[in-house]
């Protein structure tokens, strides 16, 4: 789900960057001293997760982990994911520097959303926690696909086609 450089139009890039910046600012404020280590570990996990591919059927799957990042960090998901994506962009040439804002938004916004939906449930009974974390992981990826489709819709491609591709391929 890394959108490459030169695909999105200027306004989409700029608004994506602005929103990601706002989210990161909030996240940095909200992360307290105790959560810094959590954020770092999750950022590292997110950074590496996309490299490990598990073949499933004709395609392959890799962990995205934005659900769990959001569940644990809340708003802190923004800075953690921003850092991980920046390093992926610089070191692996995944995505690009100009699309960093949009890509961060694609990953981090669903994470934060899931945090507000599910964080209260995950502290409860094991069975509830299990179900809610399933739902959390599922929903976060689904929303990421939707945002990516939304961003691309402004440029060239058919929204549903794109969102479906993100989900099923």
């Amino acid at each position: 789900m890394h959108i490459s450089e030169g695909v999105l139009s200027g306004p989409v890039l700029i608004s994506g960057a602005a929103l990601a910046f706002a989210g990161t600012a909030i996240g940095l404020k909200k992360i307290d001293y105790d959560k810094i280590a959590h954020a770092g570990v999750l950022a590292a996990a997110f950074f590496v997760a996309s490299l490990i591919h598990v073949p499933v059927g004709p395609s392959s799957v890799h962990l995205i982990l934005n659900g769990i990042v959001g569940l644990i960090l809340g708003w802190g998901a923004f800075p953690a994911i921003l850092v991980a994506l920046t390093l992926q962009g610089v070191l692996f040439q995944f995505g690009g520097i100009t699309t960093l804002g949009v890509n961060t938004l694609i990953m981090a916004l669903p994470a934060v959303f899931c945090y507000f939906l599910f964080s209260r449930m995950s502290g409860k009974k094991p069975s509830i926690a299990l179900v809610s974390s399933f739902a959390c992981g599922f929903l976060s990826v689904l929303l990421s696909a939707l945002i990516a489709g939304f961003a691309l819709m402004f440029t060239e491609e058919d929204f549903f086609e794109v969102a479906a591709f993100f989900l099923f391929y």
């Binding site: 789900m1 890394h2 490459s4 996309s50 591919h53 598990v54 499933v56 395609s59 392959s60 799957v61 890799h62 962990l63 995205i64 982990l65 934005n66 659900g67 769990i68 569940l71 992926q88 692996f92 040439q93 995944f94 995505g95 926690a129 299990l130 974390s133 399933f134 739902a135 959390c136 992981g137 599922f138 976060s140 990826v141 990421s144 696909a145 993100f166 989900l167 099923f168 391929y169």
Partner: peptide
């Protein structure tokens, strides 16, 4: 462990490509 797997596997999604 199960919890982690649960979260991560649904988090798996499937965007397989990072770069072309």
């Amino acid at each position: 462990l199960l919890l982690f797997l649960a979260v991560s596997f649904f988090a798996a999604g499937t965007a397989m490509a990072h770069k072309v």
